[in-house]
Design a binder for these strands. Structure first.
Length: 902
RNA sequence: GGAUCCAUAGCUCAGUUGGCUAGAGCGUACGAUUCACAUUCGUAAGGUCGCAGGUUCGAGCCCUGCUGGAUCCACCA
């Protein structure tokens, strides 16, 4: 048997992916390189039929985590949907060198082997990490395949590919020439462990308990007490600041105080930065080691005295403290202050402290010469385009959030002291050269340590770029955008990524896209939130609640994972996820499998229908009977709209209508990025409508043309979300052809709307029968009692169907007097043939039913009693209310007469 | 300090310009089962839509205030 009794994803998934890839169906149909067939010098391509999306590159040396799972589920659903819709889809995969992340892993390995980074020069380290990453990379790519990502593998972009580096250098050169790059000595957040600076955005602030110490700075005839959490930095103090409005210290402004433990005198200055309400109102100013103090120092032209070295030890301090770590120094300073009777007390406080987001080390504000990008122009251009709504955001509020961020953006430190990254293409003049040559020159030859230009020698800056500087070019480099040619794939149709990197990445892609190409890099942005555990908690290794997507794929299948993670998820929100939703997805796949199995078995009863060709290998599950030769069908069979069928009864019209509604809802959901809704409506349609009502009725009618057509339609509609099971079924069905992955999105089905609506009545009749049978005392009622009908054409015309669906033993026309229990249906005369005794026992339930219908009727009447409602509400609503009142009234009177009979 | 989001059934979530009796999945209870599927089928219970006001014929949805939770940015000597 081709269809086993349950769907086993493990038996199909890798074969299916292999077949897709071997047939190269994920490459876009519109060429990605310029085409000029008529040699008129113009590109013949257009962007009307293209759909482009790039993958946020996963870390090349890591494993995919749950967030990647969500990313792929979202992006691949879009890609597959638009592919079925006939677009030339280009889903471009990527791999990230993940500068700092990878470096941390590599350096840890080095340390384990008893080595340090300082044993090697930069080029050698780079080469070693390159090999390390190359070894790891295939793993991540296999996992993307397991998730079903239908990306164009030939176009995979690695963040250190030559074209990426070229593009980054071109941009940097342009910025340098435009005067947007400057070298500045500024305070940067510096990790003493990793020996590198970070951008503001990479810093993690955590609230910590600390101590605030009061220290006396003396002057002739008195002392001024300052409060500090960092006594060890006092050697770098350049002043003491007080608020100009602070009466206590007014007379001291301009005087000098003695800096404790030294022979230095420093001035007392007036600056707004000092808050009279905080501590003593006087604050020590250490321009080289505190961000605020740096600014105070700039205002007052104070000396920047660097007392902490990059390795975290003390420098430029009295002999006694030299070389101590900051912690040791703090201890010693406090001890010495007490001995000198300059210590004036301490108190506990909670303050936020900057930490390295990778190793947790407390970051040191460090005075360093670094490369900065002047972001003013970049940000203002981006704001202008954002305010013109050139990019649509999902969720919409992120547009405002982003604009707000850009308005407050500070200059961007792009230097990193990590070997693993793109070298900054700047060279410094060696000091003894002629003095009229520039200090720094741009040059692409970063593989050289030293270059000579016009007889002057220059040495390369050893720093590398912040990875966000290069990844801000991602849409540009992935689509091979160039200055010279029209590119039908740029801007991207959508940028899908995590809401947590809206600032770090999305903002920078927009700025860079506009700077380089003059256009926004994408038309829409979809941001997903965090995937939380089943209880809404953040996943973390320390909590032990991390869910590995690959485990779920192995256990339940790729489709189940995708369906599960998309359910109940909406843009931008951090939402819970549990194995249970994956199990639901698995169940749907199995349901669909069995639906197909049933349809195939009905089709098989008509042998001339059984014909197809296999597109695929000879796996044990992929075999099918030899083709039958009668009436060979053309490939157009897979175009669902061309298949022929006729609807022969109202259930058939009804399912056509329901499937059409479903398609419409899926289309509108996809347009609005409401993935969960698309999945939900498919789930309902396939399970509750197709299987539970339509297929049940087809056990009687067996309309093979329609069965084939409708099954194809729902398979294609579900394919974007569950690519494997739909393909596995497609390949197993006897009449389908080609890949479902490249099928055509179905057209609407034709049906008779009046007949379709009548089926709703039948459903309500059947439901009422089932409900009443369950409510009656006793078990197995469906087998005990038959139905009697009065003058009712719906029932009369559908005796067999109603009998099948309700499982009652018989349905007979009422001969003479009504008997048994009349069902609570306003428009049908139907009785359950039950003995008087049972009817009597049912009395309470009947009374309750009358009361509940009565309450509904009261509410409707109250509405009509309100003259304002009748006057002001839309006419159709008023009419509807009237109709409902009529229906309820008739139902109630029937139920009441029944009750009287008892 | 600035900003954003969230609060609907036991749990996780829908509910799109305000409009029919507020929905789904899971869970729970009861019942079924040779006939595609126990990864099944049927039935049911379960909600003052966080609280308090306001606008409206009509509010889960709009407005104001409050409470609770989350996140981001800035700052914390």
């Amino acid at each position: 048997m081709k269809f086993a009794s349950s769907y086993e994803p493990g038996e199909y998934e890798s074969d299916i992916y292999g077949a897709w890839e071997a047939s190269d169906i994920f490459a876009p149909s519109t060429p990605t390189v310029p085409v000029d067939n008529d040699s008129d010098g113009k590109d013949d391509r257009d962007n009307k039929n293209t759909y482009s999306i790039v993958m946020p590159p996963p870390n090349a040396n890591g494993n995919l985590h749950i967030g990647h799972g969500l990313t792929i589920a979202l992006e691949d659903s879009l890609t597959r949907y638009y592919r079925l819709k006939g677009k030339s889809t280009w889903y471009i995969p990527g791999a990230d060198h993940a500068g700092f992340e990878t470096w941390v892993v590599y350096e840890r390995n080095l340390e384990k082997q008893g080595h340090t980074r300082f044993e090697y020069d930069r080029n050698e380290l780079y080469a070693r990490v390159w090999d390390f990453v190359a070894e790891q990379r295939g793993n991540m790519e296999l996992q993307l395949r397991a998730l079903g990502a239908s990306c164009s593998w030939n176009d995979l972009t690695f963040t250190l590919d030559e074209n990426v580096i070229d593009r980054v250098y071109t941009t940097f050169e342009k910025m340098w020439n435009d005067g947007m790059i400057y070298r500045g000595e500024k305070l940067v957040n510096f990790c003493p462990k990793h020996q590198t600076a970070f951008a503001d955005i990479e810093v993690e602030h955590k609230d910590e308990k600390g101590t605030l110490w009061d220290i006396a700075y003396t002057y002739d005839g008195g002392e001024i007490i300052v409060s500090t959490t960092r006594p060890e930095t006092l050697f770098g103090d350049a002043a003491v600041a007080v608020n100009p409005e602070d009466k206590r210290y007014k007379d001291l402004i301009g005087k000098t105080v003695h800096l404790p433990l030294t022979n230095k005198e420093i001035p007392i200055i007036a600056d707004e930065h000092a808050d009279p309400e905080y501590g003593t109102g006087a604050v020590k100013i250490t321009p080289a080691h505190d961000f605020d103090d740096f600014e105070v120092g700039e205002r007052h032209n104070l000396e920047r005295i660097k007392v902490i070295a990059e390795n975290g030890t003390m420098i430029n301090v009295p002999e006694k403290y030299y070389g101590l770590t900051t912690a040791e120094c703090r201890k010693q300073v406090l001890k010495d202050l007490k001995a000198a009777d300059l210590f004036r007390g301490e108190k506990q406080l909670v303050h936020s402290v900057a930490h390295c987001y990778k190793c947790g080390t407390v970051l040191e504000p460090m005075l360093k010469e670094q490369w900065f990008v002047d972001v003013e122009k970049l940000a203002s251009v981006a704001i202008k385009h954002l305010e013109k709504n050139e990019i649509k955001f999902h969720p919409a509020n992120k547009q405002k959030v982003l604009i707000n961020y850009l308005k407050n953006l500070k200059d961007w430190n792009i230097s990193r002291q990590i070997p693993w990254g793109i070298a900054i293409p700047m060279f410094r003049r060696i000091t003894d050269a002629a003095t009229d040559e520039p200090d720094w020159i741009f040059d692409r030859r970063t593989h050289l340590k030293e270059i000579e230009v016009a007889g002057v020698k220059y040495v390369r800056d050893e720093d590398t770029f912040d990875t966000w500087f290069s990844s801000s070019h991602w849409p540009i480099v992935c689509t091979n955008w160039t200055e010279d040619n029209f590119n039908p794939y740029y801007p991207l149709n959508v940028m899908e990524t995590g809401a947590d990197i809206l600032f770090a990445w999305v903002a920078r892609m927009i700025m860079m896209g506009l700077y380089v190409t003059g256009e926004v890099p994408f038309k829409e942005v979809y941001l997903h939130g965090l995937v939380l555990d089943a209880h809404g908690q953040k996943m973390s290794k320390s909590k032990g609640n991390v869910i590995n997507p690959m485990d779920l794929v192995a256990k339940y299948g790729s489709d189940a994972f995708r369906l599960g993670i998309l359910r109940g998820r909406s843009a931008g929100m951090n939402q819970a996820f549990s194995e249970q939703s994956v199990i639901s997805g698995r169940n749907l796949c199995n349901k669909l499998w069995n639906i197909s199995r049933l349809v195939q078995s009905i089709v098989d009863e008509t042998p001339e229908d059984a014909l197809s060709r296999s597109v695929f290998g000879d796996g044990p599950n992929m075999e099918r009977p030899s083709p039958v030769t009668t009436g060979a069908r053309e490939r157009s069979e897979k175009d669902a709209s061309l298949a022929s069928y006729e609807t022969l009864n109202m259930g058939e019209d009804w399912i056509c209508r329901e499937i059409n509604d479903c398609l419409k809802q899926v289309e509108s959901s996809m347009k609005n990025y409401r993935f969960a809704e698309a999945v939900e409506v498919l789930y309902q349609t396939i399970w509750d409508k197709y299987a539970d009502w339509f297929l049940e009725s087809q056990k009687i009618f067996k309309n093979t043309g329609l069965l084939k057509q409708t099954l194809e339609t729902i398979l294609i509609a579900l394919h974007p979300f569950a690519p494997f099971v739909t393909e596995a079924i497609w390949q197993n069905l006897s009449w389908t052809d080609g890949f479902i992955a490249t099928a055509k999105w179905p057209n609407k089905l034709k049906f008779d709307p009046i007949s379709a609506a009548e089926f709703e009545s039948l459903i309500s009749v059947v439901s009422e029968v089932r409900g009443t049978l369950q409510a009656l005392p006793g078990t197995n009622n469906a087998k005990k009692y038959s139905l009697l009908y009065g003058n009712d054409s719906l029932v009369e015309d559908n005796l067999l169907l109603i009998r099948t669906l309700t499982k009652v033993p018989a349905i007979n026309a009422l001969d003479g007097h009504p008997r048994g229990l009349r069902l609570a249906l306003a428009n049908h005369e139907l009785y359950l043939d039950v003995p008087e005794k049972v009817v009597t026992e049912y009395k309470d339930a009947l009374t309750e039913k009358i009361l509940s219908v009565g309450r509904e009727l009261d509410a409707l009447n109250a509405r009509m009693a309100n003259p304002n409602y009748v006057e002001r509400a839309p006419e159709h609503l008023v009419k509807e209310t009237k109709d409902q009142i009529k229906e309820k009234e008739s139902l109630i009177s029937r139920l009441k007469s029944q009750l009287e009979l008892i």
